[in-house]
Design a protein around this nucleic acid. Structure first.
Length: 666
RNA sequence: GCUGAUGUAGCUCAGUCGGUAGAGCACUUCCUUGGUAAGGAAGAGGUCAUCGGUUCAAGUCCGAUCAUCAGCUCCA
């Protein structure tokens, strides 16, 4: 314990459980952790003093409440991984002298560091870097914080470290900061606000798993750097667990399951990013569409259909054209006999078509809201590197709707759209949905249409609706659409990557551009407001994420094959066919396995195909007029009469497997 | 689009130093008629992504193109 014999000032340190302990002035986080327990000191990553995370080497300077941060907490992981990124840079510098370092933060699953080097890093290099990192950890180097005036730090990085990137950060990003902090670990020093680990020794296991390109400061016009990704743990065991979890996640990948379960396919002969639905996948999509169509009918939507192409002028009028020009398929140009050219665009969005439907006739204030809905297929030429199975495609179908309403109806209508979206998510079992309030970026006005007033109003409306619906949201600046703010519903895939699914958007801009009107009670023309909304977002992406969410074990109502009849031997084939006919007649998607195989094999294959119910019949069942029912992943459920079994399945289909109906305001 | 990796039978993958193509599963036929996660045998199946180059000789080496994967940038 650090002591100052001259003046034994004692501070009271309060622990998270409420106990207060005296510590002499100058005691560090490490001293306190050691006092509480050896094990805690060993696992400690940093210390929180009065809510602020600092280094374990920081001394206590007043009465305070503290909390020891360990790797178990999200904060602890962040600090741990951030330190690991420094150790990686340290290792790279030792192995590849002359490397310069850009940014090296902790991320959700590990860390990365952007490195500029003459050397092209390979996977073999990663192994060498991993080894060197563990070696540096073995050296048990104290990680020391040093504060210095910014000007001095600039000089330091210019002359001692010769790192232009850190100099740029210091002269640019940190120009308002007077004093900055440096972290030293032996020969290596980085500019960093910290906090960091007490010593490199805490790092016990590391895995570097990826190298990719990134631009310095994410700016395509700046130099390209090599970004090295890794993850590190305070024990080998934790790393193993992490790698196992990754393996498991890969098994859920919708592209893998989509192929194994014959749901969809992609073919270069059709075109990249253009998924094709196979019969089994089409069943899922159709069931979901029916489900939403039914719900929309109940909520006063009107279905419409619009063509897959439209005159280019339509999109110029809507204002979509310039904003989407990067991601459009080139226009189709048609020359008539006089050589006059007309240009058509593959529909990149449905909105303009719906707006024309709205304005096809006079609308009274009494008619509003008008809700036009369509499963509209759109085409966007996304960058090749962006394509990803069903979740990022070039042709996809939005469950689109445009709601035209009066200002006094707007917030109610947003709420209704939110409610529908939530209902859809709850029914499909998505409980962990993040909601983002996507607002415009005032610093980048070129990205948006409409006036400042209109944006202020629209963002106020969206917030009001979100608050009224008691949504827990986070704010995404710059995430708005060009025509308005939106509420986005985001779900993660098996690998933890985020995908935006449902969306509700407010739009004051399109009504102006399309001169949309309704006649108010005063007999005058008024401007309606448009809500764009899509609960699924796109059928492709939604089903892609659903495949990963369920690992291909779809609820009965969505299962492409709901039951398979497995006769034990040929003498019951007729009986099995009778059951198949009865189930067919009841509307159950059933198959019959008449192959000359043993029952064990038939069951195995049905299990692998993730078919929810196996209906097993042999002599015993034929005599009793029963079936033996086996449930996927669960096992034998016993004997049922044919009627009982059919009703059991029909009931589960009707309730969508939910014991309680999701709540809704509608 | 950028950086890197990958592309061999329907699927999953071997293929050494450059010497002319291999397994398992699936498929077809035959045997087997069985009780809750793989019965047996035989057969068929390939322009080694495509195009070009080096070489006596290319699945293997080189280049380009296409596609896929990871990440970056961008979006439902």
């Amino acid at each position: 314990m650090s002591q100052n014999l001259d003046q034994q000032v004692i501070f009271t340190v309060t622990l998270p459980d409420g106990t207060a302990k005296p510590f002499p002035a100058g005691s560090t986080g490490m001293d306190i952790a050691l006092e509480i327990g050896r094990r805690l000191a060993r696992e400690a990553v940093a210390i929180k003093i009065d809510g602020r995370a600092v280094n374990l080497s920081a001394p206590v300077t007043a009465d305070c409440s503290i909390e020891i941060i360990t790797f178990d907490s999200p904060e602890g992981k962040e600090i741990f991984w951030h330190s690991a990124s420094h150790i990686m840079a340290h290792a790279i510098e030792e192995l590849f002298p002359g490397s310069k370092f850009g940014a090296g933060p902790a991320i959700e699953q590990g860390f990365y560091y952007d490195v500029s080097s003459e050397h092209r890093f390979t996977e073999e290099d990663l192994k060498a870097i991993e080894e060197r990192m563990l070696q540096i950890a073995g050296r048990d180097i104290r990680i020391v914080r040093e504060e210095m005036p910014r000007v001095q730090a600039i000089e330091y990085f210019r002359t001692v470290r010769e790192d232009p990137y850190k100099v740029e950060i210091l002269t640019d990003t940190l120009k308002e900061t007077e004093t900055v902090s440096l972290y030293h670990e032996d020969g290596f020093t980085d500019l960093c606000s910290g906090p960091h680990l007490f010593s490199t020794a805490a790092l016990k296991a590391v895995s570097l798993f990826n190298i990719s390109a990134s631009y310095w400061r994410g700016d395509q016009s700046r130099e390209s750097m090599q970004r090295i990704y890794g993850i590190a743990f305070p024990s080998e065991k934790l790393l193993k667990a992490h790698l196992t979890a990754l393996e498991e996640a890969k098994k859920r990948d919708h592209r893998k399951l989509g192929q194994e379960l014959e749901l969809f396919m992609l073919s270069p002969e059709i075109g990249s990013g253009l998924p094709v639905w196979l019969p089994k996948g089409a069943v899922i999509r159709q069931e979901l569409e029916s489900f939403l169509k039914e719900e929309q009918r109940r909520r006063g939507y009107h279905p419409v259909y619009t063509p897959h192409i439209g005159n280019i002028n339509l999109y110029k009028r809507s204002g979509h054209y310039p904003y989407y020009s990067d991601s459009q398929f080139p226009p189709l140009t048609y020359h008539d006999e006089e050589g006059k050219a007309e240009q058509y665009l593959l529909k990149p969005m449905n909105c303009p078509h719906h707006h024309l439907i709205y304005s096809s006739k006079m609308r009274s204030y009494r008619d509003l809201p008008v809700r036009l809905a369509e499963f509209g297929t759109v085409y966007r030429h996304e960058q090749s590197g962006e394509l990803n199975g069903l979740v990022r495609a070039r042709g996809f179908t939005q469950d689109d709707s445009h709601i035209y309403c009066r200002p006094d109806q707007l917030v109610d209508e947003i709420c209704n759209a939110i409610d529908l979206t939530r209902y859809v998510f709850a029914t499909l079992g998505f409980t962990e949905v993040e909601t983002r309030l996507s607002l415009h970026d005032p610093l980048n006005p070129a990205k948006y249409g409409g006036t400042a007033d209109v944006w202020e109003q629209a963002e106020k409306d969206v917030k009001e609706a979100a608050d009224r619906m008691k949504i827990k949201y986070f704010i995404g600046i710059g995430e708005a659409s060009f025509y308005g703010p939106k509420i986005d519903f985001i779900v993660r895939d098996a690998l933890g990557r985020k995908w935006q699914l449902g969306t509700v958007q407010v739009d004051y801009v399109m009504p102006e551009r399309f001169d949309l009107t309704y006649i108010g009670s005063d007999g005058q023309k008024h401007r309606p407001i448009v809500i764009h909304r899509a609960p699924f977002g796109s059928m492709e992406r939604f089903i892609g994420v659903l495949i990963e969410h369920t690992a291909g074990n779809f609820p009965l109502w969505l299962a492409p094959v709901q039951a398979i009849i497995l006769p034990i031997a040929e003498d019951v084939h007729n009986y099995a066919a009778e059951i198949r006919d009865a189930m067919h007649a009841a509307g159950i998607r059933v198959e019959l396995d008449l192959r000359n195989e043993k029952i064990g094999r038939k069951i195995r294959e049905a299990e692998l195909a993730k078919i929810p119910f196996m209906v097993i019949v042999g002599q015993k069942e034929k005599e009793g007029g029963t079936v033996s029912l086996r449930r996927h992943r669960i096992g034998d459920e016993g004997a049922f009469s044919i009627q009982e079994m059919t009703e059991k399945l029909l009931n589960e289909i009707a309730t969508k497997g939910l014991t309680t109906k999701p709540t809704t305001n509608a």
